[in-house]
Design a protein around this nucleic acid. Sequence first.
DNA 1: CGAGCGATTGATCGCCATCAAAGTGGGTGG
DNA 2: CCACCCACTTTGATGGCGATCAATCGCTCG
Lengths: 241, 241
Amino acid sequence: MATATLDLKPDLDTGHPCFGCTVREISLCGILDNEELRAYKQTGATVRYDAGATIFFEGDPADSVYTLTSGTLRLSKLLPDGRRQIAGFIFPGNFLGITMEDEHAFTAEAITASELCRFSRPKFETYLDEHPLMERRLYALVAHELAATRQQLVLLGRKTATERVVSFLLMLGSRCRMDGGLADEVHLPMSRSDIADYLGLRIETVSRELSALKAARLIQLTGTHSVRLLEKARLEALAEG
Amino acid sequence: MATATLDLKPDLDTGHPCFGCTVREISLCGILDNEELRAYKQTGATVRYDAGATIFFEGDPADSVYTLTSGTLRLSKLLPDGRRQIAGFIFPGNFLGITMEDEHAFTAEAITASELCRFSRPKFETYLDEHPLMERRLYALVAHELAATRQQLVLLGRKTATERVVSFLLMLGSRCRMDGGLADEVHLPMSRSDIADYLGLRIETVSRELSALKAARLIQLTGTHSVRLLEKARLEALAEG
DNA sequence: CGAGCGATTGATCGCCATCAAAGTGGGTGG
DNA sequence: CCACCCACTTTGATGGCGATCAATCGCTCG
C-alpha cells in the first residue's frame, strides 16, 4: 500500500529545528514537508533520559506520545513474582505510545541515554485530524509493528534457544543495514539480561548460545555489546530450524 | 481516547442489508450510520468458508480485507520443519487483513464454517480516505490488537504451562461475557491442537493441564469444546503466577 | 590495586516434550 | 438402530532442553 501520497518529503531548510535529525525519514515525521514539520515540532518538546531511567510505567496514564531520536528503549512487563518479559526494543525513529487506551500496558525504560520528541495526546490527535496522510502513516507503522510482534510470537512459542538467539542477531543485523551501518557488525546496546527477557530465556542460556555460535565460527564476539556475523546464509538457516 | 466522535450509530432500518448483523457494534462498521453502512456494504461481498478451508496463505497477495460475521478463524505460521504457531484467533466482529504490506505474513483458516464481509483493498482504502472516523476506528482496533499480542508475548516468554492454559480460559471467558454469554461457561471452538499451537505447548500438555484443573475443582469439562470456570478468583491468581 | 557488577562457564535439576497406548465420540453405512 | 471406523483426546512412561545453582572471569571505575 505504498501509495504516492505516502512518499517522503526529502529536503529540509538548514536552520529548520529538525534539520540534522537523523531519523526523520524513517519516522512518523517523514511525510511532513518543511512548513508542516516546523508546525508539528512546535506542538512538542525534546526530552532526555539517562540510561536506566523510566519514561513511563505500566499503568501510568497514556497522556503523551513520543518519537525516539537517539538512544535505545525497552518496553517491558513484570509478572507479580518478578519474571520479566520485554515486548520490544525501541530504536531511533520508532514511535512510542501507540496505545489508544487510557493507560500504558507496558513500562518504557531507557537502556542508554536517550532523547525523544514528546507530544501531548490531545495535541497529537488534533494534529492527526488535520493531517490524514500522517494518520495513514501512523496506521502503517502500527500495522508493521503488529506483524513484527506476531513474528516474535513464533519465536517465543516454537523456536529453540539457538534459533531464538540467531533470529535476534539477524533481526538486529537487518536493522543495522537499514541504518546504513555495516551489515555484518551488529551493535547490542542492551545487556544479556535484556536479551534474555526479550527471547524468553535466561542470561546463562543466552551467554552459552553466543559462545557456541562463536565456537562454531558463525559469529565473532567483538565486545560485550557487539557481534560480527560471519556466515549469514548458515545463520539464516539456523534461525528457522 | 474514546471521543464522542467514535460513538456507535445504533439503529438500523429493517430491510437494511446489515440489519440483524450481530457483530456490527463491535466491528469496524459500528461507527457507520444507515446510509453510510449501506454504501459501504455495497463495496464488499459476503463470502463463506467451510471448516478447515483457507481464506489466504502466508505469502498470498494481500488484496482484500475482511470482517468476520460468523464462525472462528485462526491466524498461523509454519516453520520449515512443520512446527506451527497460531498468532491469534479471529472471532465474529474482528477485522482481518490489517497488514499494510503487499503480502500476508500469516495464513488464515476457518476453524468452523465461517462467513465474512470481503472488501477489495483499493476500494477499502478509498472508503477510508473519505471516512476519517472509520480510519480512526481502524487504528484503534489495530492498536488494541497490538496490545493484546504483546500480552501474548508475556504468556509465551515467561508463563508456565498451567499459567498459559488458565490465562487462555480466562481470556476466552471475558470474550464470552463481552458477547453476552454466561460469564463462566466458555466455548472452545478450536481443537486441542489449535490451543497447543497458540500457547506454545503440545496437545498432551494442554490436555493434562485441563485434567489437573478439573481435578483441583477449578473448572468443569462440560464437553470437548466447552469448559465451566468454577473459581474465577483462584484462576485469576493462577494465571499471573 | 581492589571492589563490584555483568558475563561466562560448569554441574545438576525439573518441567514439559516425546514416545506410546488406551479411551471417547461423532458420523457413516449396513 | 447399531456397529464400525477414524480422528481427536486423554493418560502413562521416559527423556532432553533449558533452568537453576554455583563458581570464576574480566571489565570498569574508584
